[in-house]
Computed example of a mutant assay.
Amino acid sequence: MEPVYQSPIRGRGAQSAGVPQRFGLAERSEDGDWRDHMELLANAEGGPPVKLRTTVTEEHPKSILTFNQSPDVPFDRSINAYRGCEHGCVYCFARPTHAYHDLSPGLDFETKLFAKPGAAAMLRETLSRRKYVPKPIAMGTNTDPYQPIEDRYRITREVLEVCLDTRHPVTITTKSDRVLEDLDLLVELAGRRLVAVSISVTTLDPALSGILEPRAAAPAKRLAALRKLVEAGVPAHCFVSPVIPAITDEFMESIVTEAAALKVDAIGWIPLRLPHEVAPLFREWLGVHFPDRAGKVMSIVRSIRGGRDNDPDFFTRFRPKGVWADLFRARFNLACKRAGIGGGIGRNRFELDCTAFRKPAQDGQMRLL
Rank of each mutant, 00 (worst) to 15 (best):
P61A: 08
R215C: 06
R273K: 14
C92N: 09
V256W: 00
A217Y: 02
K359E: 09
V230R: 13
G210H: 03
F328K: 06
T202E: 07
I341A: 03
I341Y: 00
F114Q: 09
S29Y: 02
I244W: 00
A26M: 03
S78Y: 05
V170L: 05
I211D: 00
W285S: 04
L274K: 01
A190V: 08
R302Q: 14
D177Y: 10
V301F: 02
K135Q: 10
A330N: 03
P320Q: 01
A138N: 06
G18P: 00
S303H: 00
Y132Q: 03
Q6M: 15
A225N: 09
K116W: 06
I199M: 14
D102P: 00
G287I: 04
P360M: 09
A218S: 07
G322R: 04
H101Y: 10
K221C: 05
T111K: 07
N68L: 15
L262I: 09
P148N: 10
Q21T: 12
E2K: 15
N310A: 09
T156D: 04
V297P: 00
G88P: 06
G268C: 06
I172T: 02
Q69Y: 05
I137P: 01
S209K: 12
A42C: 07
P291A: 11
R347V: 08
I79Q: 07
V234I: 11
E39Y: 13
P271F: 05
F114M: 11
T173W: 02
F75N: 03
E39T: 15
H237V: 15
Y5M: 14
S29K: 11
P271G: 10
A246R: 10
E86C: 07
K131A: 15
A225I: 13
N310L: 04
D363T: 14
Y100V: 05
A196C: 12
R53P: 00
T202R: 02
R129D: 11
G88N: 07
P242M: 10
D177G: 02
N348I: 01
P219E: 04
E158V: 05
H37Q: 02
P320R: 01
G191K: 02
G140W: 12
Q21Y: 01
K116H: 10
V195H: 01
P242I: 11
E161R: 15
A279I: 05
D151P: 01
A279L: 14
R319C: 00
Y100R: 09
P49I: 11
C92I: 13
G364V: 11
D72E: 07
P61H: 05
L369I: 13
P49S: 07
C163G: 03
R317L: 12
P271S: 14
A99L: 03
S241R: 06
T156V: 09
S176D: 06
I137M: 06
K321V: 12
P235Q: 08
R319F: 03
A138E: 11
I155Q: 04
S254D: 15
P48N: 08
S104C: 11
A335K: 10
A207K: 13
V197M: 13
V230S: 03
S29P: 00
